[in-house]
Nucleic acid binder design. Structure first.
Length: 865
DNA sequence: CGGATCGAC
DNA sequence: CTATGTCGATCCG
């Protein structure tokens, strides 16, 4: 097993395929087979700078894997066994708190953008097509996928795979409109549903379902819209003759009805007793599946587009499920532990949201492919990965996920970035930077946000990316403020590259570190307010009309040339110079921008000089101020001599209102975004998960319950705490617990709500297996058993433990479950942590959820109770 | 805090 | 010729 890395470390072809995710091609009869696809892509790719960079990134991953394997090889059995106990403690706790009471649905429109375009352009319907540009595709239709054409693939390569491919440019306004139609429907099943993007959403339909039970039939009855005159839809009982064979959208009639089973017991009444002309009517039942079918039916009726859905007890599972019967299908995991376990068993970890390419490859190096593998290796993983990572792994392998569909909190950052053909002149780079700042400032303004940190992102022609950030004392939100900071950062980068110019292909600007509501109140009168006043009207007029105009004029039909954009930007700069001169930006700037040509050169010189700032409040000017001290000064000035309160940002109120307005569809659209920002966000959306892979399920190696051996090693000084908590855990579970048996262990908690035979059965007769000596204790006396465990813990193996292990001593906010602290010594882990998304199962446990700062302490307190 | 990286869409 | 844009999260130094 240790040598698996050999193959993985070999670079080139295989590496690239890993990076590009080419391993899951679904070759169709009319398309290309996997071999051909890979070859074409390789040929089109090989030798490019992009490819070189991909190889480099891959090497980095391989190095991480190498480190991982090395750490692994140094682990002792004892360490693993000890880890096993600790991990299992978490697993047990999680299992005990498993929430099976909710019905979560993940709805996913099939090939959304492509489907919309096909719907509206009949000539596209039977052709392979994709939405995007020559340089990047957002999504492709199912016909194109047979040729290997996928989301996140450059259009020019797609064309090589499929010369007849039609690439249509995206039309986000249209997608947004369709999306809001869909959301109108979704809202009726869960008013608090959570949209993830234009084509995807989570719903908690538990409440809907209980209401639905009492609904009369007519509330579940819907007309079937017949768009084709002759094409009468088959009615219940007849649909097998239609047999919608093709998974391809619109290849046959886009009929939901043809594809669905409406002859559910108890609703087959449509044929006879509906009103005269209403024979085209369908009634849905009250079950979970029926409700979701109804939802999808209504979506299709309303939009002529199909959706897939996953139904499960939590969001993570629902998401995986929605992929299962895509397109135009649904799949449900029942709210039953065994059902979850069965589903998870052979599930490739890559399917799980949060496990991406890199994680997949790293885990693969450890022999982990499926969730079962993941579960079996949990002890090892807890030693090799960071706390959050391995705990997330445990959540996944237990099939746990969040059961609360909630909107995300406040936004944390806002950014804009652009790719272009090489720009190496620093003047252009500054101009571009300013333009980005302008765009960003407008977006910030729409949400009334001000941030303290400015980050710029640069990607050179070799695709190397770097980001640099600067946090300032005051807050920034206007173009000038942002640019003042961004310019400094950019200058530093240009200087760093020294004689060589920066050869950029992308630049981005981001603002983060937003003020909280609290801070907003206090910090109201910032430099921003001052600038607003000093150039009355200019910022708001700029917001609306000014933006597109100059560049449109300059470039004509398409804004291809950044030259022109930059020129336009410069013109803009000139207009605004009087605003600039009010102090935040270097004073020289104000003096130069008289003629266009001069602006460039002088601006450039400028940048390499030491900045000089003038305080906008006291008008003091210090030559040795840097940005930070300048900002500090302003802060002081502001608190010393209060500025009249009318300087508040005019946008603040509006922003707050928007956020609270839940009922409004447009706002629900993207949470706190209005339509414009929303549009921007959607540009370039790619959907790698569109590349679903049905063939992934193989390798069905059943894992039986083995490895009952469990020698416990505990840190002596704290063993009593552990002992106690273990005791209590064993108290909770009503049957013997094996390490490998965790998923099985019966939980007699409130899961009985969703009554299912296997979920609630209490245990026969009590007996315990001591986790230390591993001997079965045939006693129903819990106290006796606990005494035994205590004794066991106090003798024997523990003496052999040499390393210092802090188990639950002083739980810190960051070390939730005792794992990380003690692992330092025998040189095992520390570095090479893998980052994974935040633990998927957060809201499972009401205790640990609430007390974020110190969850494990609470847990233990409760144990002691 | 700053920088790099991952992952999702 | 030609390989996105935006955002949140995590980890490490």
């Amino acid at each position: 097993m240790d040598n698996k890395q050999e193959a993985a470390l070999a670079p080139s072809k295989e590496a690239f395929q890993f990076r590009m995710g080419l391993n899951d091609n679904k070759a169709g009869m009319e398309g290309l087979d996997k071999e051909k696809i890979n070859k074409i892509i390789m040929d089109a790719t090989k030798g490019s700078r992009f490819y070189d960079n991909e190889l480099k990134k891959d090497q980095q991953v391989n190095q991480r894997i190498e480190k991982l394997m090395q750490q692994k090889s140094q682990l002792t059995d004892q360490q693993i066994k000890k880890a096993q106990i600790q991990v299992d403690r978490l697993a047990l706790e999680l299992e005990r708190n498993r929430d099976l009471s909710r019905i979560i649905v993940h709805v996913d429109m099939d090939a959304f953008y492509a489907a919309v375009e096909m719907r509206d352009s009949p000539e596209l319907k039977d052709k392979p097509m994709a939405v995007g540009s020559n340089s990047m595709l957002s999504t492709s239709n199912y016909l194109a996928r047979r040729f290997g054409v996928r989301a996140a693939m450059p259009g020019f390569i797609a064309k090589k795979l499929c010369p007849t491919l039609k690439i249509v440019p995206p039309n986000f306004d249209k997608y947004r409109a369709v999306s809001s139609e869909v959301r109108e429907i979704l809202a009726q099943y869960d008013p608090n549903f959570l949209p993830m993007s234009l084509d995807e959403a989570y719903l908690d339909i538990t409440d809907h379902l209980s209401e639905r039970l009492a609904w009369p039939e007519d509330k579940r009855t819907f007309m079937i819209r017949t768009n084709n005159s002759g094409g009468n839809k088959p009615l219940p009982g007849k649909q097998e003759q239609v047999e919608c064979t093709s998974p391809v959208l619109f290849e046959d009639s886009p009929s939901f009805v043809a594809d669905q089973n409406f002859s559910q017991p108890g609703l087959g009444t449509t044929e006879e007793n509906r009103k005269p002309s209403l024979e085209n009517v369908v009634v849905f039942g009250t079950s979970v599946e029926e409700a979701v079918k109804e939802m999808r039916f209504r979506i299709e009726q309303k939009t002529t587009l199909t959706a897939s859905a996953g139904i499960a007890p939590n969001m993570m599972l629902a998401k995986v499920c929605s992929d299962k019967n895509k397109p135009n299908g649904q799949y449900r995991i029942f709210n039953d532990k065994q059902a979850i376990k069965d589903f998870i068993k052979d599930l490739p970890i890559r399917k799980v949201p949060g496990i991406g390419k890199v994680t997949e490859k790293m885990l693969k190096a450890l022999g982990i492919i499926t969730c079962t593998d993941l579960y079996q290796q949990r002890a090892l993983l807890s030693l090799l990965f960071s706390e959050t990572s391995w705990q997330n792994f445990v959540h996944i392998s237990l099939g746990l996920g969040s059961t609360h569909v909630e909107r995300d909190g406040e936004r944390k950052s806002m950014s804009t970035e652009r790719t272009f053909s090489e720009i190496s002149s620093s003047e252009e780079q500054y101009g571009l930077c300013q333009e980005l700042c302008r765009d960003l400032a407008q977006d910030l303004q729409k949400e009334g946000l001000k941030g303290k940190t400015v980050t710029i992102k640069l990607k050179n022609v070799k695709f190397e990316v770097r980001t640099r950030a600067l946090t300032v004392g005051s807050t920034v939100s206007t173009e000038e403020e942002i640019f003042a900071v961004a310019k400094e950062i950019l200058k530093a980068e240009i200087d760093l590259a020294s004689p060589e110019p920066l050869r950029l292909r992308l630049m981005g600007v981001r603002v983060s570190g937003f003020l909280t509501e609290e801070e907003k109140k206090h910090h109201q009168k910032s430099i921003t307010g001052f600038l607003h006043v000093s150039k009355p009207g200019s910022s708001s007029s700029l917001g609306q009309s000014d933006k597109a105009n100059p560049s449109a004029l300059a470039t004509g039909p398409q804004r291809q040339s950044f030259f022109n954009q930059k020129r336009a930007a410069r013109e803009h700069m000139v207009q605004e110079k009087h605003a600039v001169c009010s102090g935040f930006v270097k004073s020289e700037d104000a003096t130069i921008s008289d003629s266009e040509g001069k602006t460039e050169t002088l601006d450039l010189e400028n940048v390499s000089q030491k900045p000089e700032f003038t305080c906008p409040i006291c008008f003091l000017k210090e030559s040795d101020w840097d940005l930070a001290s300048f900002n500090k000064h302003i802060d002081k000035c502001l608190s010393r001599s209060p500025i009249s309160s009318e300087l508040e940002s005019p946008y603040k109120e509006g922003a707050v209102m928007m956020r609270n307005e839940v009922g409004d569809m447009e706002i629900q659209c993207e949470g706190i975004h209005n339509a414009d920002v929303c549009a921007k966000k959607q540009i370039g959306h790619t959907r790698p998960l569109d590349a679903f892979d049905d063939s992934g399920i193989n390798n069905t190696e059943t894992t039986t319950v083995e490895d009952v051996e469990m020698n416990v090693n505990m840190d002596q000084s704290h063993h009593s705490i552990i002992a106690t908590s273990i005791k209590n855990e064993y108290k909770m579970a009503s049957e013997p617990i094996y390490a490998e048996n965790l998923i099985e262990c019966k939980v007699n908690l409130s899961d009985t709500e969703v009554a299912h035979p296997s979920s609630a059965a209490p245990c026969e007769e009590q007996s315990f297996i001591c986790p230390v000596c591993n001997i079965r204790q045939d006693t129903a006396d819990l106290a006796a058993f606990n005494r035994h465990v205590d004794v066991c813990l106090n003798k024997g193996i523990i003496e052999k433990l040499t390393e210092e292990t802090v188990i639950i001593k002083h739980p810190t906010p960051s070390s939730q479950h005792t794992g990380s602290a003690g692992r330092g010594r025998s040189g095992t882990n520390t570095n090479t942590k893998l980052r994974t998304k935040r633990p998927a199962a957060t809201n499972q446990n009401p205790v640990s959820k609430k007390s974020k700062p110190n969850p494990s302490k609470n847990t233990i307190d409760r144990f002691f109770k």
